[in-house]
Design a protein around this nucleic acid. Structure first.
Lengths: 336, 336
DNA sequence: GTGAAAGCGCTAACAC
DNA sequence: GTGTTAGCGCTTTCAC
């Protein structure tokens, strides 16, 4: 198929510019010690030939791949369904597009986790980004001793001195959202907590508990769910079936809130009159549901950018913070 | 930073297995003419050394990159905000994870479109995937003559003999959704159309028009929007401000519907009593809004898989269909 | 500041 | 069937 014209090589550029290949290479790599005239000549030749360096050759010779892997858990359905991740990836991709690095999506096979590990350690990428998801990110924590790795979201379990994390303060965020419900006169505050094998799930439950116990309210109105909408709906069904009374809900994610909200309405309950809702994530649902949701906004895109930046700097050997906490913001809407 | 132990080379494997490098290469690449014993010995050595082939070297020598680029328009915000794309990407990534290909996210800079084009033509990828988005995908149509390219969604403008497309029948989908409204007794059917520089926007408006004129109803109740929620809200505000009366809405996307639905409610209109809504996309909002939306579901993940498969087969030189139409499905919910 | 030469790790003829 | 020999296109010492 499609026989493209052979891409021009560095050699062709050198010939056209009347210099050696080394010089062209220096110009391409912005080496400081090249005469301005030469730079101009080489750039003209590059322009004229439409030269693009061959990544493979460059990578082979320089022993750097200029490639960063974004590791995605095998359960891609959940991953991609969550607008949070899309937004973070956007930030990552945008930041990397300002650098020479390329972003590769790597799906981690759960059937053969070694495959992923080997690929990453096999020298095919310069670093990896892990968007924390499952309990099973321990293997990735180990990975960090063999390869620059940055985590988006704190991984569960022991972290070592090579663990770099960009996260939000989930505990504080949850506490703030819950406190908001309390401040608005609610006294029986339920929560649908996220998975307790993910730090975001754990921390958000903690935050809720802090606020609730701090106000001497009942701390037992808990149902668990994954971060999905259907999980939230099922959890709310259980909550209602249990007969426990509540006048507010802190949902650990907007997707959970969306499922729960639908179930509340199905049962003839009004939001916010009967049940006020606060949650985390300012996604398209939180903004457009009926009523729109009071929520804690995470700077998702910026977070993605920060994750990528941290990794790039780490690869470059710069000193970077082991933990970066991104700010969050409360957004008041009609669900409370 | 992080000095990983030097990755074992093919040479090391050859030495350990007591064969030549070519033989190891043959085993790694599953060449047919190798003795079983030798294969076993080589595999044992590979296992023992934890050998992973170096992609750069392999690519340089074989002149194939085993990399596929997913081109993303610079306006990443809109791109990533749309659950449709996340879902398609998921399908792409999942399919590719079953192959040797790697998926690279490439952000097309609008400021310097040449950069993207050069990168793609520079021999750094074996093929490209374009998720149709902007009017400006004409340059990508040209690209297809230099590189295997598959479009997810029909690009606007002239397509050539090297244009491969995986799409749904947007006209039929829109017509079906609109007809559903008509069949349910609605007679004044408005539409918020998508961008008219995207084939999905154009075709969906066409489909609406077909159904409406087919039933001899008024075909002038049109507002235009991008595919976003805020665009849908603004369009609905204009629609209401214009004073035109309507009892149903066909929204060209679920995001548009979400924005429009909020505005309708703000104006005290009830859905479906005052205005019935049908749309396209079965995303998290369509499923969880109040009321849930009657919609046309596209097989997004499967579509992503099909796009990737088409490209891989195209690269392999196989004969593939120039146009693949994926089936859609009407989902009846409470918004009508 | 610039060029010459070696080699990154692999594949692909070509011989045997 | 397997080994030998050349490179793939670039970076990188090392001289000059």
């Amino acid at each position: 198929m499609s026989t493209s014209p052979p891409a021009p090589t560095l050699e062709a550029v050198a010939a056209l510019a009347g210099v050696s290949r080394s010089t062209v290479s220096r110009v391409v790599n912005a080496s400081p010690r090249v005469t301005p005239d030469v730079i101009a000549a080489v750039n003209a030749a590059i322009e004229q030939l439409n030269y693009v360096p061959n990544r493979a050759a460059r990578s082979l010779a320089s022993r750097r791949t200029l490639t960063i892997a974004l590791v995605i858990p095998e359960n891609t359905a959940k991953f991609f369904a969550d607008p949070y991740f899309a937004s973070v990836i956007q930030g990552v991709a945008m930041y990397l597009s300002t650098t020479d690095y390329t972003l590769t999506l790597l799906i981690a096979s759960e059937a053969d986790p070694e495959k992923t590990r080997r690929y990453l350690q096999g020298g095919n990428v310069d670093g990896a980004l892990i968007l924390s998801h499952h309990s099973d990110d321990r293997s990735y924590v180990q990975l960090a001793s063999a390869l620059p790795v940055v985590f988006g979201g704190r991984p569960t379990g022991q972290t070592g001195s090579t663990t770099y994390i960009v996260d939000v303060d989930n505990t504080a965020a949850a506490e703030r959202a819950t406190q908001y419900l309390i401040d608005h006169g609610r006294t029986r505050i339920a929560t649908i907590a996220g998975p307790q094998d993910m730090s975001a799930g754990i921390d958000r439950l903690d935050g809720w508990r802090k606020a609730v116990t701090g106000a001497s309210l009942e701390a037992g109105l808990i149902e668990y769910s994954d971060f999905s909408s259907s999980g939230g709906a099922a959890a709310m069904e259980r909550m209602l079936a249990s007969g426990r009374k509540f006048d507010a809900l802190f949902a650990a994610s907007a997707q959970i809130a969306s499922g729960a909200l639908g179930v509340l309405k199905d049962h003839g309950l009004s939001v916010p009159r009967d049940v006020a809702i606060a949650t985390i994530d300012n996604d398209y649902y939180a903004q457009n549901s009926t009523p729109p949701l009071t929520t804690i906004e995470q700077p998702t895109t910026e977070q993605g950018g920060k994750i990528a930046e941290t990794l790039v700097r780490l690869i470059a050997g710069e000193e970077v913070d082991r933990l970066t906490i991104m700010p969050t913001r409360l957004i008041e809407r009609e669900s409370v």
